[in-house]
Design a protein around this nucleic acid. Structure first.
Lengths: 343, 343
DNA sequence: GTGAAAGCGCTAACAT
DNA sequence: ATGTTAGCGCTTTCAC
């Protein structure tokens, strides 16, 4: 493996000079020397050892993104936005998938923090047990940014958030305005703040329209297809009336779809389904699910921008950013009275 | 940031001793000393600086996985399998998404190789221009493993491959045996070896059954939903007869679906669609697409296993592994003669 | 059972 | 316009 020393020897200069040229700190170095160095560097195909560099600069130019589930297209989008922004800015991205396992999440944070990455973008579960970890990072001035996860106790951690409460409120209102009164709801994992906000938005919309919140119509899901399927089946078998179903994310809405079809009901004639996230699966579902669009890619770009500001010692222009969500109506319909009591 | 030196001072021992204890090389160190060191380590919440360690060991315990498109559930599965295996073995995974951009791919390889990662799992495009890069890595004894990408010139690079040719052959045969004679085909990006193999499998199956290979029925796609949509539209507008469509991956099959429905044809009554990959999207498509199952997760586990063997100086038990594929029949049907000439 | 010292490859004062 | 030197935090010989 060729080192800076070898380049220096071949060029008959000191390693300092080589280092300077390579790091663009060579204002005061003769063109001739520069040229010579670059030539030898090319010849030997030399690339500086990133580890050695990190050792002295205390910077790795790597950041990490911790996501719960990379198979979820929503997080895949986040990952893409984050990665693109990193690469554009001379950084690299450690993409870490926790599978929603708290131990994995904490292990990642612990290990990565030890100088492997200069900062992190975090989408962990953030239950109370995490507070201690985050507080420590805060104390150490270690840069990190939340995406779509909020911690009450750490209100001043920078973050990028979707307007989940309003979004859930509005999509519920949308159903209500179409005439639906009995709207079932499948939550995300309630350990995550966005799942709680979506639930609250749903409940508030019902209350504001003088509709009862029926706990039997609310099921706990997990943001996965299989969870949506399972909970929908349970709802259908409960023998309770509902004309619409709001799944807290599109993946669960897909699962709900399957369950409803297996049950022999027509969508949306007998049951309307709406989701959340606006996952990009063009034409796959027929009819498509009305949903809330979350600008995932854009949010990731913003999160990285904030993080890099933090890492490079700048004060971010905005350190907490909320993104309003847009309803994407893909053809929800009013309930059909005559078939509503299907159970 | 607490260092090994601080631990040593507090314990009244040398840093060597601390290092030994922490690295389990302390056979000859008294229990008392060990205990003391561990206590102080816990107290100060000390974790060794990974960068400094790498500097001397020449190992980072990181590997990288370069994929063309993390939004493709197939690669998300690969990523999951790779990551899980890494974590289990004390490694971490750099997940790199190239968006099929050759410059990005090459930049990743170049940068990562410089000691950021101990080895790589590669799913790049591997056109000729890559040979030079790979040859260099081979020369340097730098460990890397292919997944689903093959390079003719580098036949001895370890790799994990799906039986693409046989798979494509068999799914084509499946359609032929159902009675289909005019089978359209959408390729993947032909710069990738697996796309070429799938094309060849399709062609061979036709020939073996004395069916003509009609170039007008073959369109170049890109493994993306939008590509499947676009090429299918073109096929439909060409005014050529075909009763079945084989898309080289499920994502394109989904796109084809949309195009066909928009065109007003019934699936599978008027047109059968089959895909490849067996992407996990339960219940989303109605009717579902017959496809070939590729054991992506399992393949990733194997690839990491081989790579870690290489990194840790063992000889892998098998260094080139081919996985046979299984047809997943989700309800293909025979062509309906009377509606076949739909165009 | 433990320690001293060298050195990994690089950057950054501080010279000159 | 360039070189000398120290040092980043750790592991690893070699010594006692």
């Amino acid at each position: 493996m060729v080192t800076i020393k070898e380049i220096a020897e071949r060029c008959g200069v000191s390693i300092t000079t080589v280092s300077r040229v390579l790091n663009n700190k060579g204002d005061s170095i003769s063109e001739k020397t520069k040229e010579r160095i670059f030539r030898v560097v090319d010849e030997l195909n030399y690339v500086p050892n990133a580890v050695a560099r990190s050792m002295v600069t205390k910077r790795t130019n790597n950041i990490a993104l911790i996501v719960p589930d990379i198979s979820n297209p929503f997080f895949a989008d986040i990952a893409k936005g984050a990665e693109r922004t990193c690469v554009n800015r001379g950084f690299h991205l450690f993409l870490c998938n926790s599978d929603m396992d708290k131990e994995v999440e904490k292990e990642y944070i612990r290990v990565l923090r030890k100088r492997l990455v200069d900062g992190m973008i975090i989408t962990t579960q953030n239950t109370e047990e995490y507070d201690v970890i985050f507080e420590e990072m805060l104390e150490d001035n270690y840069p990190f940014v939340f995406i779509e996860r909020y911690s009450d106790k750490l209100a001043d951690v920078p973050g990028v958030f979707a307007g989940n409460m309003d979004g859930a409120y509005n999509i519920t209102k949308h159903l209500i305005e179409l005439g639906h009164k009995d709207i079932a709801f499948i939550t995300g994992p309630l350990v995550t703040s966005n799942a709680r906000y979506r639930l609250e938005g749903y409940q508030r919309a019902l209350k504001d329209h003088d509709l009862p919140v029926n706990p039997k119509l609310i099921r706990n899901g997990n943001y996965k297809v299989a969870g949506g399927y399972r909970e929908t089946k349970t709802l259908l078998e409960q023998n309770i009336q509902f004309s619409a179903l709001f799944a807290s994310n599109d993946l669960m809405a897909f699962g709900a779809y399957q369950a409803v079809k297996e049950y022999g009901l027509e969508i949306p004639e007998q049951l309307s389904i709406v989701g959340f996230d606006n996952i990009d699966m063009p034409g796959v579902i027929e009819p498509q699910v009305t949903t809330m669009d979350i600008p995932a890619y854009e949010m990731a770009v913003k999160a990285v921008t904030i993080l890099l500001d933090l890492i490079e010692g700048r004060t971010p222009k905005e350190s907490k950013v909320y993104y309003p969500l847009k309803l994407v109506n893909k053809g929800s319909t009013a309930p059909k009275k005559e078939v509503q009591d299907f159970a």
